[in-house]
Design a binder for these strands. Structure first.
Lengths: 233, 233
DNA sequence: AATAGATTTAAACTATTGTTTAACTCCTGT
DNA sequence: ACAGGAGTTAAACAATAGTTTAAATCTATT
């Protein structure tokens, strides 16, 4: 897996990088990035193979090293490429601050759940990349967290804090945020297990909406109960 | 990874299997099982290597194939070995039916959380084996589910159903059970991510108790709210 | 003690991984 | 036209994986 460090030679960046040559040159580069995004999202960093990626991109095996140096740099580039706002799409559907907190919570949960089960969508690729990082950190985990996870986390803390009437870094605020994230991650992640325990739950669109509503209601019950019966801890 | 199917030859079982020879024979077998349980629990099925296991057991590399046929059969045997009730311990601390449902829920959550963070304990090995199956099914997933996960799942359905006043296979009952399991799995599983988002949460014993109490309270809020404001769906 | 079978060992084998090499093609600028 | 570099290719390389082999060792029974 980890070959001995040898003469690592990344592509010498062309002096005419942005010139007419760039189009044709970037073509396979982009194809590799797209293929890599799909394969990494499906299998995770460790299980995705360079050959898989190249086959999907219709490129030679050596090209990932030629264009990106090595597999990890390709992965980092995929994250940079896939995690930033797509063309015309907001970064992670962070609901506007205009919504009342409860509605904002519903929307962010809905966005996360939809995203987790949407197939073959770029937004979904993003989500799966993150989910994989959750359980199998890959050396680029810190970047994933900073770029994608933390915004969602901070936004959720604002929303939950607003409902609870507690500061965003209060212990209780954070625990609740993790409870919400945990539910979403579980439904998205434990599918092979759920298929055995609850075969009827196949996450059809209707079931997805049901799950979203459930998670929101399940979470809001506690949040609202805390609001009404306030005992400063 | 998957070598071509050749002449698969498992150990020819000795005719004097239960005789005096068995002790010495089972010795390395048991050592392999214990080492394998630890390594599989730590790294998961795919990432654990036969060489790691044998090194830990102080055994030759060929012995896992000699005694178990192949890696997957060893893993299956580890599950059979590790997942059944240990000497003098109940299977999964399923709380007695004597407790009132809310207390039973607290206890089962507490047992799961403790188990998830207890280090170097056999019960913890069990739990980690299961957690790994959650996210990276290994071909023995069905067995893990049947032997370990399903009892917890069924028990939780009884408890939640009792609080909700709904049958165990009602949709809402199942959704709530998954919300609870999801929270536990999340706190147990997303530690590398949580270390980045919430560095202070290091799951000390005190924090574990806090998390347990939180998950129970968070979940019971919804369950109790549903009980009081019943609207048949 | 001797023998037969069970167990253990070191080494090899096969497949797959990421990576590198050297030749080759193609295009561009002079 | 042609020199030169960017891009591409097939092949090989090194490391590691699980597995197998054939010989050595051990052990229990005769």
């Amino acid at each position: 897996m980890i070959p001995r460090p040898r003469t690592k030679r990344t592509r010498r960046v062309s002096p005419v990088k942005a010139g007419k040559i760039a189009d044709a040159a970037d073509s396979t580069r982009i194809r590799l990035l797209k293929a890599a995004a799909a394969v990494f999202a499906e299998h995770g960093y460790q299980d995705a193979t360079v050959r898989q990626i190249c086959a999907r991109a219709g490129a030679n095996i050596a090209l990932v090293n030629y264009h990106f140096g090595d597999k990890l740099e390709l992965y980092t580039e995929v994250l940079r490429f896939a995690l930033q706002a797509g063309p015309g799409g907001t970064r992670f559907d962070l609901p506007s601050v205009a919504f009342e907190p409860a509605e904002a919570l519903r929307r962010i949960v809905g966005a996360l759940v939809d995203r987790a089960f949407e197939t073959s969508d770029q937004a979904n690729l993003r989500f799966r990349l993150i989910l994989n990082e959750f359980v199998r950190p890959s050396g680029a985990t810190a970047r994933v967290v900073d770029v994608v996870m933390r915004p969602v986390y901070e936004r959720l803390r604002e929303i939950v804090g607003a409902i609870l009437g507690l500061p965003v870094n209060h212990q209780k605020t954070r625990l609740c945020v993790h409870s919400i994230l945990g539910q979403v991650a579980h439904f998205a992640h434990a599918r092979p297990m759920m298929a055995l325990l609850w075969p009827e739950m196949t996450m059809t669109p209707a079931q997805r909406e049901l799950v979203t509503e459930h998670i929101a209601a399940f979470s809001l019950a506690y949040l609202h109960a805390q609001t009404s019966a306030r005992v400063p801890s």
